Computed example of a mutant assay.
Amino acid sequence: MKLALEFQLQKGHFKLACNIDVNWSSPSTHVIFGQSGIGKTHLLRSLCGLEHPDGRITWHNQQHVEYWLDKQAGLAMPCHQRNVAMVFQDGQLFTHMNVEQNLRFAFERSDATHEDWATCISTLQVQDILSHNVSQLSGGQAQRVALARAILSKPKLLILDEPLASLDWQSKQDVMGYIKRLNSQWRLPVLYVTHDIHEVLTLADHVIMLEKQGDSTLAMPAKPLMDILQDDSHPFYGLGKSSILHTQPSSNHNEGLLHCAIGQQTLRLPLGELSSHETQLRLCIAASDVSLSLTPAKDSSIMNILHGKVSRIEQTQNQQYLIQLNIEGQYLLSEISAYSFARLKIQLWQPVYAQIKGIALQQAL
């Protein structure tokens, strides 16, 4: 699946230019990231047909190409024909309907099955609030209902416009858990808009940056999140060069620690506010929090020691060394001094041990 964007939008002094392809080789989440006011919502409105910029927008799947917009040919497909579902910050639920009526409004106008209905109601845990009026819902409940309604419309593309912006911390964690399962459970390609770094680290597979260049906003081609985090000039303020590891938490809690498997190896994290109910945890680990040794430390307070092989060596601008390790098929970065690099005599494909403090893992979630 591919969304090809070749358009320019101008409204007053605001200018947005897009000349990128957004590719989903498999259902995944592309995050559109940029500072407040840079034009993220204008981009989404253009995709949905709520704005009519100059240029062309096309949707490609394995069977055919749909022309959503071709200004030169005088074509602008109406919003409802694009089969795109959008969830806003406030959910945009129908206030004159209760929860079930909101959901049935989407369900009865799509090709969703009764099995889809049952699965959606159960997964998003709205079965106990179906009879509630919209005014009775908390912020987290309203966003769960909005997500359920969007899913039941059976869209080809799901767009989420800062859906967590108005929620408290706990509600954000709960709703993010549901969003993380959208790709795998519903096979949905997702575009997610945010200016929150934590949401990027938790949800993004690829990132589309919006950047100011002169008096225009430009949409930059999508890059894998892992590649962006390894770049010295990445835009996530306060976060240095980092890695993302995908782990499977277990129910094995020992002395306040959550055990997470990475292949055949184990990471141990302070439980804190982590949820052990997730089937997968994404850990963001700063390269500066990873030290290396040639043998596993036996007398150390550091419990997280992962065995891997050196897969890349790069000298940084500040005369440090960035070492990429292959650990169980995933990549972990370590930043060490030139002195340590020379002392350890690091070489490509050399077996080494990465040491990570548990507190560093907890803070990076």
Rank of each mutant, 00 (worst) to 15 (best):
117 W>L: 09
122 S>M: 07
93 L>M: 04
119 T>H: 14
156 K>I: 10
71 K>I: 06
135 S>L: 10
110 S>Y: 02
77 M>G: 04
135 S>N: 14
147 L>I: 14
111 D>V: 08
83 N>I: 03
100 E>H: 12
143 Q>G: 02
145 V>I: 11
111 D>Y: 06
81 Q>H: 13
152 L>E: 06
130 L>T: 08
65 V>S: 05
65 V>D: 06
114 H>C: 12
113 T>K: 06
84 V>D: 01
112 A>T: 08
110 S>C: 04
80 H>G: 05
76 A>Y: 08
97 M>H: 12
151 I>A: 01
88 F>S: 07
130 L>R: 07
83 N>A: 04
111 D>A: 09
150 A>W: 13
75 L>G: 01
121 I>T: 03
88 F>W: 07
110 S>K: 01
92 Q>G: 04
68 W>N: 04
136 Q>D: 13
95 T>E: 12
119 T>C: 13
109 R>N: 09
102 N>S: 12
94 F>W: 15
123 T>Y: 10
100 E>A: 12
90 D>P: 05
139 G>K: 00
74 G>K: 11
144 R>D: 02
128 D>S: 14
151 I>Y: 01
146 A>R: 03
82 R>Q: 11
131 S>V: 13
96 H>V: 05
152 L>T: 09
145 V>Q: 01
122 S>V: 08
150 A>I: 14
136 Q>W: 10
113 T>S: 15
122 S>N: 14
104 R>G: 08
134 V>N: 00
132 H>T: 07
65 V>Y: 04
94 F>T: 14
156 K>N: 15
110 S>E: 02
141 Q>H: 11
71 K>H: 13
78 P>E: 02
93 L>Q: 00
114 H>V: 14
112 A>C: 12
75 L>E: 04
111 D>C: 07
153 S>P: 04
97 M>Y: 13
98 N>R: 03
68 W>Y: 13
75 L>Y: 04
145 V>N: 01
112 A>Q: 08
140 G>W: 00
137 L>E: 03
158 L>G: 01
88 F>P: 00
75 L>C: 05
103 L>A: 00
145 V>W: 00
134 V>T: 03
154 K>H: 06
116 D>W: 06
91 G>Q: 05
107 F>I: 01
115 E>P: 01
121 I>A: 02
85 A>I: 06
115 E>Y: 14
102 N>C: 11
96 H>E: 02
122 S>C: 09
158 L>Q: 02
124 L>G: 03
80 H>D: 12
133 N>I: 05
116 D>E: 10
144 R>G: 01
75 L>V: 15
161 D>S: 12
81 Q>A: 11
79 C>L: 13
77 M>F: 04
135 S>P: 06
73 A>F: 10
143 Q>F: 02
131 S>P: 04
85 A>H: 05
129 I>G: 01
128 D>K: 15
96 H>D: 03
82 R>W: 12
100 E>G: 07
105 F>L: 10
159 I>D: 00
118 A>N: 14
154 K>P: 03
80 H>E: 15
96 H>P: 08
73 A>P: 03
71 K>L: 09
113 T>W: 09
106 A>C: 10
123 T>H: 14
160 L>H: 05
105 F>D: 05
129 I>F: 03
131 S>G: 11
109 R>C: 06
149 R>N: 08
124 L>Y: 05
133 N>K: 13
81 Q>C: 06
87 V>C: 04
107 F>E: 01
105 F>Y: 15
85 A>M: 05
130 L>C: 08
81 Q>Y: 08
87 V>G: 02
105 F>P: 04
